[in-house]
């Protein structure tokens, strides 16, 4: 619990600092285009890595591929591509994942 509050405090400070430094210090400065692109690509990389870590689960020193997680991710990807609705695609992904968990 104490750890959670410490983490929340540290996150609050570091996130606010990134905002205020941008507004106060970086204002008016031209950032190199490559750096801009790099910063914009970072979330894509981190989210992709998080998905991989959910699909491949470590078990006794090796990796196991979780088919239900893989199937639910693919289903969500397809549904959001078609409908563009976040919540709907998440719910359908979970339902299909649950179904495949029972069937596989």
């Amino acid at each position: 619990m104490l750890n959670q509050w410490m983490l929340i405090g540290a996150l609050a400070v570091s996130t606010y600092l990134s905002r205020i430094i941008g507004v106060e210090v970086m204002a008016g400065r031209k950032m190199r285009p490559a750096l801009r692109l790099y910063f914009n690509y970072v979330p894509i990389a981190i989210i992709s890595a998080l998905i991989v870590k959910q699909i491949f689960i470590p078990s006794e020193g090796h990796l196991d591929l979780s088919f239900p997680v893989l199937i639910s991710c693919i289903s969500t990807a397809i549904v959001i591509k078609i409908t563009k609705k976040f919540l709907l695609s998440a719910v359908i992904g979970i339902l299909i994942g649950l179904l495949s968990r029972y069937l596989l």
């Binding site: 570091s14 996130t15 990134s18 905002r19 205020i20 430094i21 941008g22 507004v23 106060e24 970086m26 204002a27 008016g28 400065r29 950032m31 801009r36 910063f39 914009n40 970072v42 979330p43 981190i46």
Partner: peptide
């Protein structure tokens, strides 16, 4: 992840 806030703030 927060580095892009520097861009937005600027």
């Amino acid at each position: 992840l927060n580095l892009r806030n520097l861009l937005y703030g600027a």
